[in-house]
Design a binder for these strands. Structure first.
Lengths: 338, 338
DNA sequence: GAATTAAATGTAAACGCTTACATAAAATAA
DNA sequence: TTATTTTATGTAAGCGTTTACATTTAATTC
């Protein structure tokens, strides 16, 4: 087997009988090259199986054509869907996605961000607002364009593409209250390093505070979306002498866990107790009873984040945060309380 | 604000009073540098906030610390899970994951592969075996280490980390036959560009051919995993004058679609008809009735693929394909036929 | 103490690309 | 026709690293 290093612009140029500059132009600004020349070059490129060397390209142009995303985990439908859309939009502009997962650990997120930046990421997609100051300082120091998604804040220091978790949960809670529920329990993942859950919780509390005669119990699950732990929490709530009339879960995965445990325990949802979720993932429709939840436009969020990052890259300077709307989806797991 | 481009090795070398070679060694082979010198350099690095330029580094060393994956879609739990594991293992070795999705389109997959390679991917994770010759030729021409996952072949031309879809489906079909079913229908996604589904189909056919007195009907859904289209196919099967006794679906998503439609139509699963899936995604346990399916070790597959790629990168040369075991998981959607 | 070996550091040449600038050719204007 | 502008292509200088190889310095041996 002959050892042959990858073809370079020089090889292509020689084969096509043009200069390296022309080859480069064919690749980057084809409109500046005569169609006939372009064709010759294309033939040479195909024949050699040439693809530009990234290092050389990046070094010469100072552009990596790469964007990074640091998310808690891909193994969660809500992130998977948004990231998929994010990647699609980037790919349409010839940008490759660098991906990294932090497992909800802010320190690991920081290291991942550094790694992605040193890999040349031209911009970053980050989830939520909960991270140490040093992370933001690093982003500022290195002047890295970044989008904070899955949540929203009014401040103008960062760009947000997300929705108002607090508001959405308040809306859902109001719906629940209006349906006559008065003893509300919440099963929530840990709020440490998770502003989305913290916001949802405070949203529910807000609504309940304003309602008269409604009470609240909060149970924390030890994992953000473990159906099994949610089942455990559900059991504890059912063991109470005065049972809640409704259990609101901080996301659909927990709600599904609660519903499953109810089924195992012979408790009827929603006749004996109502349950709600948050996110509107696929399972919400599949589970029995189907889940009342808050619909979140994950795909649009990913798309919008990518578009924002691309327009910053293109030099547009006055970008604004984007707030997406959510809506309560009524299904069978929530029932009027008589 | 002063415009200052990022510090370079030269800046660091000058400030520390050493040569660029020494700076480089401090970063890459610290043991080759005197501790005292190392400290001087460290001070300079910290003072300037220096981080090595990726392009320069890659160009000079020809290593990108990057691996690529081209998958059909992230928005499918079976890939998300495997990719998550794949990424975790890579990250532990300081390798960043480049990700790209093809939407089951071989041409787009080819382009994505080229893009990732030109972004410097040192190795690739690919899904399944169905792709045009030119893709393989490109991989060979450029000598790109690559793993083919989610399926398995005996040939030694490529490295596989997967499971035997044909065998697994045959096993499941035998289980179904042993439980007394004799009229079997299959709802399958399109087999074009999807060797996994094609293999599963042939596995089922194999088993049925060997059984006496069993018949088979095949319905194709127009999408790989659309629960809605599966529902439609289910309805058509139910409209037959002689109904099947069991419907086997080529994956869990389709099976769930069928179960939902059955519920809507007032048909009882499994009393009126049995249904099976494939993959054992989370929903399989959640849906009512819970789904009999084939368990696939997605996480282990992702891990193994990453480890293989890493050891190739480390120079180990005699790597072998890995075949992972699947197992039939019996749940409530499949019932003995009397 | 001189000769030899080992260790630490320096010098400078790639690596493959883009792009400002130079040049040549073609189109237009005078 | 000649002068001017426009268009297409070529030339060559970086971009920031790494790493053979050369050189200097220190340690060891005889």
């Amino acid at each position: 087997m002959t050892i042959h290093s990858n073809p370079t612009v020089d090889d292509v140029a020689k084969l096509a009988g043009v200069s390296t500059a022309t080859v480069s132009r064919c690749l980057n600004n084809p409109e500046k090259v005569l169609v006939a020349t372009r064709k010759k070059v294309q033939v040479a490129v195909d024949e050699l199986g040439y693809t530009p060397n990234f290092g050389g390209r990046y070094l010469a142009s100072n552009r990596s054509r790469t964007m990074g995303a640091v998310i808690p985990t891909i193994e969660n439908a809500i992130f998977a869907r948004g990231i998929q859309a994010f990647q699609e939009v980037l790919a349409n502009s010839g940008i490759t996605l660098l991906i990294s997962t932090s497992g909800y650990d802010p320190q690991l997120e920081f290291e991942n961000i550094q790694a992605l930046v040193s890999q040349g990421a031209e911009g970053l997609l980050l989830i939520g607002t909960a991270r140490p100051k040093k992370t933001y300082e690093f982003l500022k120091l290195r002047n890295i364009p970044h989008i904070i998604a899955w949540n929203h804040r009014r401040n103008r220091e960062h760009l947000y593409v997300g929705f108002d978790n607090h508001f959405a949960m308040r809306e859902l809670t109001n719906t629940v209250l209006n349906m006559g529920h008065y003893r509300i329990a919440i099963i929530a993942g840990p709020t440490v390093n998770n502003d989305r859950i913290a916001d949802r919780l405070s949203g529910a509390q807000d609504a309940i505070k304003k309602a008269t005669g409604a009470s609240l119990i909060i149970k924390f699950s030890h994992s953000n979306s473990s159906p099994i732990l949610a089942g455990q929490a559900f059991e504890e709530l059912m063991a109470l002498e005065i049972r809640p009339t409704v259990i609101m879960c901080s996301n659909d995965a927990l709600a599904v866990g609660a519903i499953m445990r109810a089924r195992d325990m012979g408790i009827n949802v929603p006749d004996d107790i109502s349950i709600t979720g948050f996110d509107d993932i696929d399972v919400a429709e599949i589970v029995t009873p189907s889940l009342t939840t808050v619909h979140v436009p994950h795909r649009r969020m990913g798309q919008a984040a990518a578009e924002l990052l691309l327009s910053i890259r293109a030099g547009k300077t006055d970008q604004k945060s984007i707030k997406l709307e959510t809506r309560v989806v009524l299904r069978h797991s929530l029932q009027t309380k008589k």
